[in-house]
Deep mutational scan, measured.
Amino acid sequence: SLSVDNKKFWATVESSEHSFEVPIYAETLDEALELAEWQYVPAGFEVTRVRPCVAP
């Protein structure tokens, strides 16, 4: 099958004044980091952490 098993990760994104967490959907932690950097670094943010979303 061609289905992709995307998992939810939380990326911590920082600017000079703010820090916030955004959801990233990817297959692996490395891919989540790449996606977060691709989305947020060009906008002037720094991705400081990516972690798996742990269900309660």
Results as ranks from 00 to 15, higher is better:
41 V>Q: 08
15 S>C: 10
6 N>A: 14
25 Y>K: 03
3 S>L: 10
14 E>Y: 12
48 T>G: 02
23 P>L: 15
31 E>C: 06
21 E>W: 06
45 F>E: 00
2 L>C: 15
38 W>D: 09
23 P>R: 06
9 F>L: 02
28 T>F: 04
14 E>M: 13
39 Q>I: 15
11 A>Y: 02
52 P>Q: 09
23 P>S: 07
5 D>S: 14
33 L>R: 15
44 G>Y: 02
18 H>W: 13
8 K>T: 07
53 C>I: 04
33 L>N: 04
30 D>S: 12
39 Q>P: 03
21 E>H: 07
7 K>Y: 09
44 G>L: 02
4 V>S: 10
13 V>R: 01
39 Q>D: 04
39 Q>F: 15
12 T>H: 06
5 D>Q: 15
26 A>N: 01
5 D>T: 14
8 K>C: 15
29 L>H: 05
50 V>T: 02
56 P>G: 12
1 S>E: 09
18 H>D: 07
49 R>T: 07
15 S>D: 09
33 L>T: 08
13 V>K: 00
31 E>I: 06
5 D>N: 15
33 L>Q: 08
35 L>Q: 07
23 P>I: 15
50 V>Y: 03
43 A>K: 14
1 S>W: 09
11 A>N: 01
37 E>Q: 14
41 V>I: 08
20 F>C: 06
53 C>D: 15
22 V>F: 05
4 V>P: 10
25 Y>A: 03
9 F>S: 00
17 E>V: 09
38 W>F: 12
41 V>F: 06
39 Q>M: 15
31 E>K: 14
5 D>G: 15
47 V>L: 04
40 Y>M: 04
34 E>G: 07
34 E>S: 12
37 E>K: 15
31 E>M: 12
46 E>F: 11
28 T>P: 01
53 C>S: 08
11 A>H: 01
14 E>P: 01
20 F>R: 03
10 W>E: 00
41 V>T: 09
10 W>L: 07
26 A>Y: 02
27 E>R: 15
25 Y>S: 03
43 A>L: 15
54 V>H: 09
4 V>N: 12
9 F>A: 00
36 A>G: 02
2 L>G: 12
43 A>T: 04
18 H>G: 14
2 L>Y: 10
54 V>E: 09
38 W>L: 14
30 D>R: 14
12 T>G: 02
24 I>Q: 00
49 R>E: 07
41 V>E: 06
44 G>I: 01
45 F>M: 05
19 S>A: 07
40 Y>N: 04
34 E>F: 14
44 G>E: 02
30 D>K: 14
36 A>R: 02
55 A>M: 12
32 A>Y: 02
37 E>H: 09
27 E>W: 10
8 K>H: 09
19 S>M: 07
56 P>M: 11
34 E>W: 14
3 S>K: 12
27 E>K: 15
26 A>S: 03
46 E>A: 10
11 A>L: 06
17 E>L: 10
28 T>Y: 03
12 T>W: 08
12 T>A: 04
34 E>Y: 14
51 R>W: 09
45 F>N: 01
22 V>A: 04
42 P>E: 07
55 A>I: 11
23 P>H: 08
30 D>L: 12
5 D>A: 14
48 T>L: 07
21 E>A: 05
41 V>M: 07
55 A>L: 12
9 F>Y: 08
25 Y>H: 04
40 Y>E: 03
12 T>N: 04
11 A>D: 00
18 H>F: 15
